[in-house]
Design a protein around this nucleic acid. Structure first.
Length: 550
RNA sequence: UGGGGCGUCGACAAGCGGCAAGUCAGCAGAUUUUGGAUCUGCCAUUCCCAGGUUCGAAUCCUGGCGCCCCAGCCA
């Protein structure tokens, strides 16, 4: 949309973008949209994209954040070579430019308090009035600004303001603050500075210094564009073009650093990289792939319209990628014991299983089979409705890659009546899963051999919020009121194929018929993996059940 | 009674005066040793509304309506 327009040969055919995060939080999927846009556009038109930290507010910024941000962008698959910049690298030049504006009578030091400045600014409908300090002499302003830098004044006692128009309909133009005094150590410049430039002043100049041609930002900065332009024009320096686009909103989650920080601080989640978080760190731990996220960003498009993208689209992109690449494996989440009565006691054999039907190159593996197995509890029903194809008393089904088995009897807990165990018989002629006599079976079940199985913990995730748009709060409520109590379910008695014992952290698999899972990179121990459910498989049966309940 | 922006299918989104792409979701069917994957077909006579210009408008004009953002010494 904006892209063709750019390629039209303006800016001398040169294209330079930048991704300018503030290191005050972790990156989330909304940032991924911006990253893909900026780096993607540059790559598409033979340009470059710089990586610049917008670190002009030491009070909120930390090195932990700069490190996570860098690694997240790299993980997403983008590279900035040696073009890693910091707005703080430009502090000296920014200071000089401010001096230039003062000399030209376009900026002044103001002694009003923050509250007074607010009062003088006026309201949305009423114009502001001039600060009594607006007409200080150039000399006095220069002297005061120099002394601000020298640390002679206390925090918040004075600011440097641009002299623009106190009556402007655009509040950003009512003599905006350019510098404030903050005696706070900066994560990079230490205590070299005690005055720090504001975003509006620093951003455009930073873009200009770097020769950025297209400065892409989100819609809320549209009102700031006249100011962006004003500084550059008054300074008569290279003038990049600011273009705005709508930020991403995703259903059933929140995408703002302020809200995500609140979730972390109030312990609604276990940190920024909690697999339920829409942060890149959380998604990575959950098992999302960079490829899936990039594809998603590609598909949602870029425009100026506020939108709420369906989570289903993200999950579609995820499954699309995982389906092609994830190795198949069998894992029983809620085990139900099955004894094959006519299988030799103590017998054991290894059956061939395909690793990935979508990729013949992935090969095959051997899975152990024996007299005692586990199947999924939900794959058996004593009194099944007609739409249920799976195991039931007297019914025959196929065990994937193994045999046809038939349920002969059910063992129940005398007291609770709960089904404890199934007794089945198998047909030796169906080894591998095909029946020589051509008889059909309506379902294929995954299973695992009980004595060979690996016990593991599996964590099932659901949406963090129960409301499609948690930002859309009713009177007196907060987005945290819509947190989903079932966003995490921990299963501790899962039985997996033994081959998974040494699965490496982060590795993703498809547990056949159950979904995609990956080895948790934080809580897994050698030989004792913990799996995170990345996303379920599409499930016709679940859909039928849901429809039936309604 | 200020300034800025946006309004095309349930959700995204093309379209830029010539007669509504595509994707997700949904529905129906084929196929299947994952009720997975795959494949087919269906899903906006209509583009926020009302006028106007035109042979012809989602696209141009006028007037409404609705939604979002802005009063940090945050970014």
């Amino acid at each position: 949309m904006i892209a063709e327009d750019m390629a039209a040969g303006r800016s001398g055919g040169r294209l330079m973008t930048r991704f300018p995060p503030e290191p005050n939080g972790y990156l989330h999927i909304g940032h991924a949209k911006s990253i893909c846009l900026n780096f993607g556009l540059a790559a598409e038109f033979g340009g470059l994209c710089n990586f610049r930290f917008d670190d002009t507010n030491p009070a909120k910024e930390e090195v932990e954040y700069v490190e996570s941000i860098e690694s997240d962008v790299r993980w997403l698959g983008f590279d900035w070579d040696d073009r890693l910049y910091y707005a703080s690298d430009y502090f000296e030049r920014l200071y000089d430019y401010a001096g230039q504006l003062i000399k030209e009578g376009k900026a002044y030091v103001c002694d009003l308090t923050a509250d007074q400045i607010r009062e003088y600014r006026g309201t949305l409908t009423a114009p502001g009035k001039a600060s009594p300090y607006r007409d200080r002499s150039v000399e006095e302003n220069l002297d005061l600004f120099r002394r601000m830098r020298a640390g002679e004044f206390g925090d918040g006692s004075r600011v440097l303001r641009a002299k623009i128009d106190m009556a402007s309909g655009n509040i950003n133009m009512r003599d905006p603050v350019m510098y404030r005094i903050k005696k706070e150590a900066h994560h990079r410049t230490g205590d070299r500075w005690c005055i720090y430039p504001m975003y509006d002043y620093a951003h455009g100049i930073s873009d200009s210094i770097e020769g950025v041609t297209h400065s892409l930002c989100t819609m809320e900065y549209e009102d700031h564009r006249p100011l962006y332009d004003w500084f550059l024009d008054e300074l008569k320096i290279y003038h990049p073009q600011q273009i705005e686009f709508a930020r991403l909103n995703l259903s059933y989650t929140v995408l703002s650093k302020r809200r995500l920080l609140k979730l972390v601080n109030e312990k609604h989640v276990n940190g920024w990289n909690d697999p339920r978080m829409p942060t890149l760190a959380g998604m990575r731990r959950r098992g999302y792939t960079p490829e899936a996220i990039r594809n998603f960003c590609e598909r949602i498009g870029v425009g100026k319209k506020e939108s709420l993208v369906d989570l289903a689209l993200l999950e579609y992109c995820l499954r699309e990628d995982l389906n092609k690449h994830a190795l198949r494996v069998m894992g029983v989440l809620r085990p139900l014991k099955v004894v094959i009565d006519n299988y030799p006691e103590g017998g054991e054999e290894y059956l061939d299983a395909v690793n990935n039907p979508e990729d013949p190159g992935a090969g095959t593996r051997k899975v152990p089979f024996s007299r005692e197995l586990y199947i999924e509890r939900e794959d058996f029903m004593e009194d099944p409705p007609k739409q249920f194809f799976r195991l039931a008393p007297g019914r025959e089904v196929r065990l994937r890659y193994a045999y046809f088995i038939k349920c002969e009897s059910v063992v129940r807990d005398e007291r609770t009546g709960e089904v404890m165990e199934l007794h089945c018989t198998y047909d030796p002629a169906t080894r591998g899963g095909d029946s020589p006599d051509g008889r059909k079976v309506k379902a294929t079940l995954h299973w695992v051999s009980a004595p060979h199985s690996l016990e593991a913990e599996v964590r099932l995730y659901n949406t963090l919020f129960t409301k499609e748009n948690p930002n859309d709060t009713e009177e007196g409520r907060d987005f945290t009121d819509y947190l989903n109590p079932k966003s995490l379910e921990v299963l501790t008695d899962c039985r997996l194929e033994p081959g998974l014992k040494d699965a490496r952290a982060g590795a993703g698999y498809q547990f056949e018929r159950m979904g995609y899972f990956c080895v948790d990179s934080v809580d897994s121990a050698p030989g004792k993996p913990v799996f995170n459910r990345t996303v379920t498989l599409k499930d016709e049966w679940a859909k039928l059940q849901k429809a039936g309940k309604k």
